[in-house]
Design a protein around this nucleic acid. Structure first.
Lengths: 226, 226, 226, 226
DNA sequence: GATGAATGAGGGTTCATTCAT
DNA sequence: TATGAATGAACCCTCATTCAT
């Protein structure tokens, strides 16, 4: 008779997980420098020393958090299947899916912003992350090639820049909505606005890629917006 | 013969300016929480107490820095004239100009990221900044209207979302290039890449706005990019 | 056999106690504003952070010190028994005992002076202290009533004012002896003077209360004192 | 023809006076360590450097303030005349007058408390103050002698201790009313209470001095006070 | 005599990290 | 593996004092 049940996460692992979760919340809401180990300990109900036992230092903990969040994104992205779709449908789905992904992961966005503030040191240090290719990037390339072959997408589109643009259009809206709201004097995170933005981004990406753009018939009239 | 030269900024003002400059560097490179008052003092060659004499608190100093950088951007933007230009030329110039502006102001971008981490509290608190409308936003609206009237731009484009998109395409590249570089395994801030990106962004904006897109004939061939 | 000895105060409690003791010395000798946390840390051999760990702030530490000293006084006072004594004897004992108490607690006196400088904010904030009635006050009332009933004490004496007077006669001598010494050009804290003062205070209180004052036959001759 | 009018306080003197007044307020309300030079400068509308010009240091300024307040008290006391009064009337007047004096000078009381906290260093250092004899002390001695000669006052009363007692009964009430109020749960500084206390103190002093005490017929009934 | 700018030591407080059990 | 106590460097901020004009 085994002492430990097989399929159980050990107490140790649970503690570690709790710490990681608490750290994710703390780091993403306060940034690396604003985050407090004490707070992470309190929130994870772990003893402070445990954090050092498992993660050695604040820096390492941050890296672990970042890695973890990154994996989450990649996993989310890998759930998307565009096989068998026509290029336009694929691009639409891909863009929308990416949009949804980031909308659901504001934590990751804040972590990445922080990482950029620190010039990407943690990301660069982590072998895991460097080796984790981005499915979005691969998919964009794939779709572009298909689309070009079928004549629906323009030639000469740099997939890397397109990838960056899709990410930009999606990411920036979540990342900077606080300051954007002040500039545009409009609330941006209401359900309606979020849906509108989704349409807009897809429209933008397709307009850019397609040789003949089919304008959505259902589009709202913005002629009096400003 | 006057004792004092006429065009002298007072010593006090110079000190204040030095502090503000040093603080801009420090805050934008380390973020609010990572920034050190001691470092600002050292860099500005001012005594630490002077900082408090002129700015009362770290928080206030940050607000002053943000405000100052914001004003810089607005002034830069106001130098742009699109009067008399055709809509397409205007939009091209506007987008390119915005791109250049942000490329030259990485500090501001980091400050804004930080401000978003803190949910925009400083920005919202500052009456000055809230009242400073964004020329880009106004110009985008203007251009869209003209373009629609002349039949070169699509109807039904939301100027606010377009404004956000232009900002996104430009801002994100500067803001997140460290993490993007890891993802796309490409160096992004070389002169060549920066120029390429500029083209790309303009292309994207025009593709989106125009009814009949004129594809740039000189566009590079990216078919083997990935 | 138990691993831990039974009567051990935990290490934490000992540290806390050390801090409180050191703080009492520091606050009572320098006042709230003159007291230095660094000094308290040094004297208590505790790390400065421990002070904040246990007491949160200088203000709270002061309150704790005051409370602690107050409790000390009340405990001292509660040791006094006047049951069964005749009113005059009781009043004599009570006054003398109070005198002795304050003589032994110059720290408390300085703390109270400081508290009065700060308008009693700490005292008023502390529920504990507000609820701690003063045995002296109760006893004075009791004795007066008995004495009046037995005809040895005058009617119409306000116990509150009498209480205050006893406290005044005792307290002021300890509290202000430095300036008094300059005014009267007499050293006041010698054993002899202290004893003399004790007699004087008791005499004063009795003179005030009694209907027929019995003049002490052994009283010194002061006719050439000045 | 003189440049300066003779009987005018010069601007310099006025500045000095303003500083002294502001310093008195500041020191008496915050104590030596709690007082702020900046605050004194602001309140006196003098430049901070002027304070150092006239008074050299915070310490010296405090001494000047104390000296000044002391002189005020002495001057007040010197206005009292008891010549020609019968001993009992004289003692009554003297005590009442002292009571009134202290009631009007809470600032001085706080300064003296502070001085005692600092063990009287400033007072002892000031030759002026050490040489300023206390009229109260002289008068007490005088009255006692007359009273004894006329047979209305007891022999064997130590004038120094009596002097201290009168001061105690008066001073403590003003000095410690904040903490006393908490202890006796009674508001102490209302006009009525102040008047009551005055009666009480006089009664106490006379009871102590007189051979045959005449009990005031108008005395309130306190038998239910507690 | 008066002003405004500057100085530097140090004050209260925080926080990542380690030690002892 | 886990706990609680302790550490020490450093952080933001204050304040008495001085300098230059």
């Amino acid at each position: 008779m085994p002492k430990k049940p097989l399929k159980t996460t050990s107490k140790a692992e649970r503690t570690k997980k709790n710490i990681l979760d608490a750290a994710t919340t703390e780091f993403s809401s306060k940034g690396f420098d604003g985050a407090r180990i004490d707070e992470i300990a309190k929130r994870s109900k772990a003893n402070k020393s445990m954090i050092y036992h498992y993660f050695d230092s604040k820096e390492n903990l941050f890296t672990a958090v970042l890695e973890n969040a990154y994996v989450g994104l990649r996993e989310y992205q890998r759930d998307l299947s565009i096989v068998g779709l026509k290029p336009v449908d694929g691009m639409t789905k891909l863009t929308g899916y990416t949009y949804d992904a980031f909308m659901q992961m504001p934590d990751l966005i804040r972590l990445l912003n922080n990482e950029n503030l620190h010039k990407g040191v943690h990301l660069r240090k982590s072998k895991n992350m460097r080796e984790m290719y981005d499915p979005l990037l691969v998919n964009v390339g794939e779709l572009l090639r298909h689309g070009v072959k079928e004549g629906v997408f323009r030639k000469n589109i740099d997939p890397v820049n397109l990838y960056i643009s899709i990410a930009s259009l999606v990411y920036h809206y979540v990342s900077n909505h606080h300051t954007l709201e002040v500039a545009v004097e409009r609330e941006l995170m209401s359900e309606e606005r979020i849906a509108e933005r989704r349409e807009h981004v897809i429209d933008m990406v397709l307009s850019f890629c397609m040789t003949n753009r089919a304008v959505s018939a259902t589009r709202k009239d913005f002629s009096n917006a400003l």
